[in-house]
């Protein structure tokens, strides 16, 4: 603090707290809605204070699910799908980006820059932009309704490759010289020196990519028609569509809550690393 101005400090605190309250308000309403029974959630005005049906709704959503016209899927299964998708995307991206950054930074080989630009260009083509032709390719390969189709097209990542390239470029040359003198081959060097040295960056990137994977929506929506592959983020939309007739806002909001919690836990628990990774790599 530069100077002591109690009034300004008080205003600062008030503005932040007000901001936090406004930002958290939608989630509070969701939490309240998730803790009442279905009947209460059809009576206007809706409650502003939690009711006593939270755990009942939780277990029903998790293990029974909501009838969305046809079969009802338990949210637990959707959570599993989301988790698998997020993990495969995050770890897959990290793995292939580490390898290609290693090749581009540490090897001289023909077409090196060609490969680099080819990876770079993927930065410019988010899946939303080329959605129809990508869908067609995946359909032609017979990957619809599979985990492979769900994850593979989202795994290539220019951002992660750039970040690891940046990290590798800051690692002193002497390390490679020393490793070579000790007789280490390229892969040995990669696993024993590069990987341990970039582990904080890997962790920071993992947070960002896990959220990216978990929150995927349009892509899974298009390529999975099989109910058993529904992710929880997609499930919400189906419930919203059916919600108007079914009037089960309590369960819809419970599912929304369940879908939000895992990525929020990841961000908040790995906050320090995440903030560092985000503000230092994106630029």
């Amino acid at each position: 603090m530069i100077e002591n101005r109690p009034i300004v400090t008080f205003i600062s605190h008030s503005v932040i707290i007000l901001g936090i309250i406004i930002i958290a308000f939608p989630v509070w309403i969701t939490f309240v809605a998730a803790s009442h029974d279905a009947l209460r959630m059809t009576q206007s005005p809706l409650p502003l204070w939690p009711g006593g049906h939270f755990f009942e709704n939780l277990s029903e959503a998790l293990f029974v699910g909501l009838d969305v016209g046809g079969a009802s899927q338990p949210v637990a299964l959707m959570l599993l799908n989301s988790f698998v998708m997020a993990m495969v995307i995050a770890l897959g991206k990290i793995a292939i980006s580490l390898l290609s950054a290693f090749a581009i930074v540490y090897f001289r080989f023909p077409f090196r820059m060609g490969f680099f630009w080819m990876i770079f260009i993927t930065l410019m083509l988010p899946v939303e932009v080329r959605i129809l032709p990508t869908f067609k390719v995946v359909a032609d390969l017979g990957l619809l309704n599979s985990y492979a189709g769900l994850t593979l097209p989202l795994i290539a990542s220019a951002t992660a490759t750039f970040m690891f390239r940046q990290v590798f470029l800051t690692i002193p040359d002497e390390l490679l010289e020393a490793a070579r003198i000790d007789g280490a081959g390229p892969m040995r060097f990669f696993f024993d020196i590069l990987l341990p040295m970039s582990r904080t960056n890997i962790a920071a990137l993992f947070v960002i990519l896990f959220i990216f994977g978990w929150n995927q929506y349009l892509w899974p929506l298009l390529i999975t028609t099989d109910q058993s592959l529904t992710t929880v983020v997609m499930g919400i939309k189906q419930m919203l569509e059916a919600g108007e007739q079914l009037l089960q806002w309590n369960k819809i909001m419970m599912t929304t809550l369940i879908a939000m919690v895992p990525p929020i836990i990841v961000v908040v628990s790995m906050q320090k690393m995440f903030v560092k990774g985000l503000t230092e790599t994106d630029k």
């Binding site: 090749a103 930074v105 540490y106 490969f115 990876i119 290539a156 040359d173 490679l176």
Partner: peptide
Amino acid sequence: KRVHFGPSWLPFALVAPQIFIT
């Protein structure tokens, strides 16, 4: 890198997964 590995099949194998998906 100033110090780097010479040409071999290895770098191609390393970039292969990324390039394939791209």
